[in-house]
Every structure is written in C-alpha cells, then in structure tokens.
Amino acid sequence: MGVLVSEPSTEQLVFLAIRGDREAFGAIYDRLAPEVHRFLRGQRLDLDHHRLEDAVQETFLRLHRMLSSFDASRPLKPYVVGIARRVALELGRRARPSSPAGLEDEPSRGSDAPEEALRTERDRLVGAALAALEDEHRALVVLRFVSELTMQDLADALSCSIPTARARLNEAALRFVQELAKRGLLPEERSP
C-alpha cells in the first residue's frame, strides 16, 4: 500500500518560495503557468509563440519579486493574472497589435464539412471581435470568460471593489457585443 502524500497548499508553496525554495516556486509555476498562458494568449492573439513565452516569463519574474507582499491567505490565481494583465497592457502600449485587421483577413481553416466550416468561421469572427477591443476591455472579457474568474477574483485581479469590477466588466462586455454585431454574429435588430 502506497503512502498518501498530500500536495502542499499554494499558501505553503508561497511561504517556501519567499524563503528561496526554487522548487516551490517551480511548483507554483506548474500550477499557474497554463492559466497565465491562456490569459495572455487571449489578451494578445497577435503575439507569436516566442513573444508570448517572454510575457509569461516576465509575469513570473515579477510574481517572484512581489511574492513577499502577497497575502497568502488570498487565492494566488487572480494575483498572478493581475500581474499578467499589467504585462500585457504594457506590451500593448509599446506596439499596437496588428490583430484586428490580421484576424479579419486570416483565411478560414475549416474542413469541407459545412457544419464544421461554419463553426470555424464563427470562431474566427469571435476571435476577431475579441481582438478588436481596446486592451483594457479585452483583458476584462478574457479574465471573465476565458480565465473564468469570479467577480471577487476579478476585483482582486484589478485591485478594485466588486461593484467597480462589475461596472468595468459591463462596459467591456457591451463593447464586445458591438464588435460581435459588426461581424454579423448577432441577428439583425428588428423594429419594435
């Protein structure tokens, strides 16, 4: 019969990492890198893989520098994606993504099956609508709908109150709806 060894909690890993335990920080990376990667991919659909990895690296280096300020009783994921958001916004300020136009022009890669082709085309347009948003709005949409942060986590990631987070998310979501409509993904509005 094997010995059951429970995995260390994130709080324990943070505690060890602050004291210089690299493997503990490696374990934090293993737990959170996919989330950070996914957020950054959603936020910057235009980045190539290498630049995206650079952004992931920058996020975790900053996390390490800020770890001693982190309240370990709080969940780490919103804190880390909050850092990733800052990294992504800085990247966005330095170079505007070519993505909106690029994604619009990108040819569909659907199969011959009509249903599959339709789905692929719809996904491409959803991606283009996301890419067309302003950086801040896109970050909110991705944090909520791709990273699936709760409103509390979203408020933590943005360092603001829940009502403020909700108001900002509402604004971003309505912009996203407009972009979806522009691409014909919503039915035509009829007169009341």
Partner: peptide, 30 residues
C-alpha cells in the same frame, strides 16, 4: 470564446520553466 483562445495555444516549452527558475536565484524579496 475559451475554445477560440485554446485553439491558438501551443504548449509552453520546458526550457521556459528552467529559464524562469534560473532567473530567480535567492529568496523572494519585496
């Protein structure tokens, strides 16, 4: 939306983890 993003993902390289851990030698500081 999540699938749209995931469809564009490639796995992170193992070297990235090594690079990050190499860059954080020593205890975390403020």
């Amino acid at each position: 939306l999540p699938d749209v993003v995931r469809s564009r993902e490639r796995p992170l390289s193992p070297e990235l983890r090594e690079r990050i851990l190499a860059g954080i030698a020593g205890p975390a500081v403020a």
